[in-house]
Design a binder for these strands. Structure first.
Lengths: 120, 120
DNA sequence: TGGTAATATCACTATACGTTGATATAGTGA
DNA sequence: TCACTATATCAACGTATAGTGATATTACCA
């Protein structure tokens, strides 16, 4: 494990961190983030790609914008959203790896238990 | 930026990831995690350190246990909780860095704006 | 000016969840 | 068995928020 500094956070810092995690704690918002992985898109495009309602998509985009994860640009009647904090992908990758590890461990436990006392 | 693979997650995977983020989206739970940074502790110890109510601490610990972030060990009438997924600290560090970057950028913008047109 | 498209916001409902006091459960020692 | 400690769970309350249909706002075009 590399660079395991584990800085000790306290008080207000933890509140800020929790806030950021909360912004990423909705599947719909993660879908929007991943839809923007290959560049900026309009709200309409995102509505189509995520198959969500326009009002809902707009609201989730506002949350991510407020959290500093996304940026916004207006052109004509359209609004273009883009990723401004690329670290979200690192976060998701880390979580994914962790989930995989956990599932792999569960699988090992299950296999060991189900084969316990079974003839080899 | 190293190892920026950005794997593309879809459907159920995003749900799992969102779940994990949700487990980390409460300040109290982050406080518990950081209280456990230096080793396993009993519920009583955690109640004292976090200055929370016993019922509340117990419930938050259950959430983190279910999420796979913590592990539990019983000894006598006490329950010892410990970190089982060290990646949570990496996650928090990443978020912290990101928040710092954003605040630094805001500071630069503010300074530039407040000094605009001011005599040098 | 009137009409249309794109987006944001409002109002409302349903649900999830954090907090808290009270109670239940389990282990320990007298 | 009885009392005590530690922990988990229950019940109730209030708040936050996701989803949704309707409306407001803004830009563009005829």
């Amino acid at each position: 494990m590399a660079g395991n500094t584990k800085r000790n956070l306290s008080g207000a810092a933890l509140d800020r961190v929790a806030e950021r995690f909360k912004a990423l704690s909705e599947p719909m918002r993660l879908r929007l983030i991943y839809a923007l992985m290959d560049g900026e898109k309009t709200v309409s495009q995102l509505v189509t790609e995520t198959e969500g309602l326009q009002a809902n998509v707009s609201k989730h985009l506002a949350v991510l914008l407020d959290a500093g994860v996304l940026g916004r640009r207006k052109e004509g009647t359209s609004a273009y959203y883009r990723i401004t904090d690329e670290s979200v992908f690192e976060l998701c990758d880390l979580v994914c790896g962790s989930i995989e590890d956990r599932l792999a461990a569960e699988l090992r436990n299950f296999s060991a238990a189900s084969s316990a006392g079974r003839p080899s």
